[in-house]
Design a protein around this nucleic acid. Structure first.
Lengths: 335, 335
DNA sequence: CACAATAGGTTAATCGCATAACCTATATAA
DNA sequence: TTATATAGGTTATGCGATTAACCTATTGTG
């Protein structure tokens, strides 16, 4: 039913009385040894017959696939909805654009373990991989075992290389938030974050730096149900602060909604500040003050670095994307 | 640098003094003609040497790829952020799970034109395609030109087949919303939708049916900037209604935020009702009353239908997923 | 004029895997 | 005893594209 035969290079060649080599060379612009006439003839025929390359054959012959894999950690905290997270979906969206722009194809996958990434990359002969959401030692492990270049989309600060690492300035973002809170007259500030996550620690340290003093730290659980219990349990504690810094917009907005349901006014009673600059933050009510990162720039940086690594395996850089505090309506000025 | 050679079937065969055919047969469970001893030996060696199949070769040899393409219309209304839309990202999330569960791989792509889908499917020898967000005549066109089975994830009601079609009961969803509004004492109801879209018309007709009378219809523009102008321009008109039905949560929430900025209280001054049951709807303030659909079920249905179509090209069904009104806080009871 | 260079191709091997067709030794049946 | 099954494999070909090595006729050069 779905079966008219596909046009192959061989068909084109036969119809023109040429060899497949000539047609293939025309396809790849290697026309130095082919007369202009022949080139034109071949091009016309290719167009006419609607030739579409068979990537499997190409891949097998050339041993590079033009596939870039994007692998996201299927982290428990998302409860199976990773791709619906605003940071992740923004990443996927822009990575998809960049990958296509550069003439590559995207295969998307959730994974729990490094081994899955390695298999995935290997079986498809991927040219490169973008990884999101794993932790530092997993990346070290990956580096030792994988045979294709990869870049860490949500990288962490560090000196070494052998893989690409896109970071944002977590510390500076925290610092900007802390400074802003300080200048707005806040000093009783609570940070909710996960102190086992490097990124979270950096942001927390930044906040302290900006505030000029050590803020309080409260570890937030990663499972949704645990978080609800957590919010209930610490409700009174929250009220004893004038401002809360959450390590992501996701947590900030969740907390904000929780407090609003408890009839706490934001920002009159408590100020909240987030991190990420997600679409949700723009749409919240009141609009969340948050440290924004440019996701499009981040994706562009990641993919162009990856492609440089693909073409020259000695390249491997740490690139840091600047962040900027975006003032919303969720922080009250006490002065 | 990234180059230890990969283990091939040939390597395994040589190391055991067997032929590649035997190894390949073991890999595919065709062990009727192989002694148990040999099977064990081969399996052990495969494990030991960490054999990973080369999909390009497999694909070329068998002419099926185990790739399912997911193609989303890069519609202007999203302004380049399709994958960040909550309906789309939920679709991608669940489709990804189902595709993986069934042992397939997902390639994701934005496309503007049908031709891109056809090329995409053809060059990768895809087993099947899931399409989202195109319009009816484009799908007709696709059906006539593509050679692999496809299912329309956001299908439209209709009798004919030759492709898979997952619909939700748009009319019934509208009807439930209309009925609910009527029972809450609303009669001056405005629908914002795009009357050129079949789905939107069905929902509108459903609303009228539920209300027991013809609601007003206002065509909403698809570009963001135009919508802002549209909201401003029709502000007074909005106020003359007691309830607004928006054809999607996306529009409903945008409108709600617009009205709230204008100090219109929802639902006291105007009630709003949406459609989709997105995560954003759950998180809005007030919580949006909306017609919800089960995205996970939808994805499961789509992929299992697609796989049946892959295995038997005579299959092609219209499957309809039921919807259910979920009461939030955005509709005022006038009785 | 002899020979090299160049233009304009062609031939054939290769990539890794799947699979139909074939082979051989032993066991079983008639 | 001879024919036939069966077990347990092997051989060889094809999938579609790439590409290094090769070929031939014509033109250029000293």
């Amino acid at each position: 039913m779905w079966s008219e035969n596909k046009v192959r290079i061989k068909d084109i060649a036969e119809e023109l009385g040429l060899s497949t080599a000539t047609v293939s060379n025309v396809l790849h612009g290697k026309t130095k040894k082919i007369s202009e006439q022949t080139v034109k003839k071949v091009e016309k025929k290719l167009e006419e017959r609607g030739y579409i390359p068979n990537m499997a054959a190409t891949l097998l012959a050339r041993n590079n696939s033009r596939i870039i894999g994007v692998v996201v950690n299927n982290h428990a905290k998302y409860e199976g909805h990773v791709f619906e997270d605003s940071f992740i979906s923004a990443a996927i969206n822009h990575l998809s654009d960049e990958i296509e722009n550069k003439g590559y194809f995207m295969m998307l996958k959730k994974a729990k373990r490094i081994t899955e990434i390695i298999e995935f990359a290997s079986m498809w002969n991927m040219d490169g991989i973008v990884v999101i959401g794993f932790c530092e030692d997993e990346y070290q492990d990956l580096r030792d075992r994988i045979r294709v270049p990869f870049v860490i989309y949500d990288g962490f600060a560090q000196e070494q290389n052998r893989f690409g690492n896109i970071t944002i300035d977590d510390f500076d973002g925290g610092r900007q938030a802390g400074l802003y809170l300080k200048e707005a007259g806040h000093s009783k500030v609570l940070c909710v974050a996960d102190n086992e996550v490097c990124m979270d620690r950096k942001r927390f340290e930044g906040v302290c730096e900006g505030l000029g003093e050590k803020a309080c730290f409260l570890k937030i659980p990663m499972h949704e149900k645990d978080r609800h219990i957590f919010y209930e349990k610490h409700f009174q504690q929250f009220l004893s602060y004038t401002a809360i810094f959450a390590v992501s917009d996701f947590y900030a907005l969740e907390l904000m909604r929780f407090l609003q349901r408890k009839h706490v006014n934001i920002p009159e009673d408590i100020s909240i500040i987030g991190f990420d600059g997600s679409a949700d933050a723009k749409n919240s009510n009141p609009r969340l003050t948050t440290v924004v990162q440019d996701n499009k720039l981040r994706a562009q940086t990641a993919i162009s670095l990856l492609i440089r690594m693909i073409n020259d395996s000695s390249v491997a850089e740490n690139l840091c994307i600047p962040v900027k505090l975006e003032i919303g309506e969720s922080v009250k000025n006490h002065i």
